[in-house]
Write a protein that binds this DNA or RNA. Structure first.
Lengths: 160, 160
DNA sequence: TTGGGTGCAAAGGCTTTGCATGTGA
DNA sequence: TCACATGCAAAGCCTTTGCACCCAA
């Protein structure tokens, strides 16, 4: 789906979700979700979201962006990512209409800066072992693995 | 070792490390390291470090604390921990005089708030699998697992 | 109509920086 | 001596908040 398409399905679901929670459907909220929804896998800062929304809706204020981000986060429509660079980043939540299947585990390439997700099940083994060895029951996780992605590693070996 | 002891070994090593890097040995720097060194496993904010140092050295400024934290971090003497509560926390680095054996993986108890470390080797399996399935070579990690620690789980079952 | 939402600007809160003074080597 | 370190205060920067106006329901 191209950026800028109408995406009626997601928008309709979003509107209903807002109504269901006693929140109003506003142009601002829809525009912000649209920005995030049309850029899956991108990790945008509030400022970046603000800039994208202003392309279509120049009068929006940054405060509205922050407030909407909070709303979207509470509705589990977006996930937070903190790369410790002074910005909190957000991306559209992939699975989960009902349950929060937050995927707070990322591979961050030190070469190209791309951020990849990886499968939950790889973490399950780790969390099982933590339970066995430490008696610690994991309920949620935030895992950031820094390294070199497949593509960058391939490019490197070419350059040698 | 009690808080407040002299810890001549670590201090001496620290002083040499400063000199080796062309940095001056100052009362402030030694005091700040002492605060961290005498509280292993505690995760102190800059403000908390500032408060502890002022007990012995009331004239220190918060800017010096921030600048010294940066120095200690560059010398790999302390590790950063970000719990996303608006503060960056620091703890004395355990291993590693030479190599940075940063242990950026923590278990954070949602009940008591304690922060535990766990063994590196539990992550190795995960990182091996990431390489196999994704072709991503992990170089560093920051892993935060939130849940319920052994003690809190024990206390809970008593209370039922 | 009307209460929640928005835009603007100001305030908050952690951290960094500029600058004159202090001090370790 | 003198370059680096410090203390103070101001500034930076991201984010939140107060308030009057606006608008979806």
């Amino acid at each position: 789906m191209k950026i800028g398409d109408d995406m009626p399905d997601n928008q309709e679901q979003f509107k209903n979700l807002l109504k269901k929670n006693g929140l109003k459907v506003t142009t601002q909220r829809v525009s912000i979700l649209e920005v995030l929804d049309s850029r899956p896998g991108m990790h945008l800062t509030a400022e970046e979201i603000y800039d994208y929304v202003r392309e279509k809706y120049p009068d929006i204020g940054i405060a509205t962006v922050y407030r909407t981000i909070q709303v979207l986060s509470e509705l589990n429509l977006i996930d937070k990512l903190n790369l410790d660079d002074g910005y909190v980043r957000y991306e559209i939540s992939k699975g989960s209409k009902e349950e929060a299947c937050h995927h707070h585990h990322h591979l961050i390439c030190l070469d190209c800066g791309n951020v990849y997700a990886f499968q939950d099940d790889l973490l399950e083994t780790l969390e099982d072992r933590i339970m066995i060895t430490m008696g610690f029951q994991v309920a949620d996780h935030e895992v950031k693995l820094y390294g070199h992605c497949k593509d960058c590693r391939a490019n490197k070996s070419i350059n040698i």
